[in-house]
Nucleic acid binder design. Sequence first.
DNA 1: AGAATACTTCGATAAGGATCAAACCATGCG
DNA 2: CGCATGGTTTGATCCTTATCGAAGTATTCT
Lengths: 224, 224
Amino acid sequence: MREGPDIARIASLIGDPARANMLSALMGGTALTASELALEAGVSLPTASSHLSKLMEGGLLTLASQGRHRYYGLAGPQVAGMIEAITGVAEAVGPKRVRPGPRDAAMRVARVCYDHLAGEQAVAMLDRLVEKDILLRNENEIRLGPSAASHFAAIGIDVDAKPRRPVCRACLDWSVRRSHLAGTLGAAILDKILAEKWARREKDSRAVVFSPPGKQAFERVFLG
Amino acid sequence: MREGPDIARIASLIGDPARANMLSALMGGTALTASELALEAGVSLPTASSHLSKLMEGGLLTLASQGRHRYYGLAGPQVAGMIEAITGVAEAVGPKRVRPGPRDAAMRVARVCYDHLAGEQAVAMLDRLVEKDILLRNENEIRLGPSAASHFAAIGIDVDAKPRRPVCRACLDWSVRRSHLAGTLGAAILDKILAEKWARREKDSRAVVFSPPGKQAFERVFLG
DNA sequence: AGAATACTTCGATAAGGATCAAACCATGCG
DNA sequence: CGCATGGTTTGATCCTTATCGAAGTATTCT
């Protein structure tokens, strides 16, 4: 019997439907209040509060108190990655989904994954960046290529800015079965996309919808 | 309320300690039988069987029937990756160890890990065998050295006997953070220790307690 | 200050599920 | 065949935990 890290404790935290819904909601990357999460999970406020304190105690969430609001967020990229991994398995083994509706289709094309872009667009982008040697990839390790700094500087992204988190990281996509770009660079690119208004976030969803000219601009800059 | 893939269902499968232990055991990559997994998880055979059928239904395991043996294994790399991800988070957020009690102390020194010896004694033994080139180690792969056959024959262990399971396997020890010897050779050595009455198994525990002369004999043969 | 909002704690209830003993299938061996 | 071994099923018990109403705390608004 191997009694290493207590994975049952972590898994059982996610194993409750209400808590799983909360965590999924937080995968959008923005912190949410207890009431918002109660609504997401479909439970009463006291119940939600109880769940949230358990998730906090389990180290899966961070809390930022602002006045009478308490904003809960995922504890970090590692937690987000774990939830993505579970989502992938659930997707793979789960019963055939109800016919994927239009909302689902949009999610597959592009969505927010914690703080960066995921979906077919994001996978295509990483492929192209590697193809052009702007990024160098070896398995799940991604490094900046020699031309990376100048390339991203040209579009207003400074890749040397934040040393705290890894700049590049591969994140497994559950819709396509391949990786997309996470890390501070991935986050910066998502910021850029939203700041330039190439795309907007769908209300109450992780889906990201590109406008026609926005899509052209995105493809010119990142897929060209 | 979100309705994506049912991550709560998957997570709750892993959220039970018995099932989590089984899955961790299967992370070694080799398929195991129901009885072996019952031992790993520390539950009775009926309980284990019930858990296994749940894991099967959840799509996390594959089953290969060979005669009256039923070998359970992880369903695939995606499942393994998910468990790795959860393990990583558990490791990161829960470094707080339980205070080791007296029963725990005996467990740390020597205990049964399914069919072979684990604990500090076992780790020391593997170290010494590798140091003397009786076993050759490369990461987690362990092979017999040139002198292995004669060395073990001298103490009444035939290393060529059973081809079904690997002869040597590295098994990660949770008390020490290093590997000990599993596989048929590990099992044969444990048999030897118990047959020679160098040690006895503690009642209702996996702890193995050496008698003073037994410990001397063990050290002479395996650590000398 | 008083009222309203955001959230947590308490207490009681109810439901789910983990557990094992005993009985039940299935396969291999002599 | 008879017997041992490996696994599953059944049934009953017990413990955990999710849930919400009601009451309590904290912060902002007027």
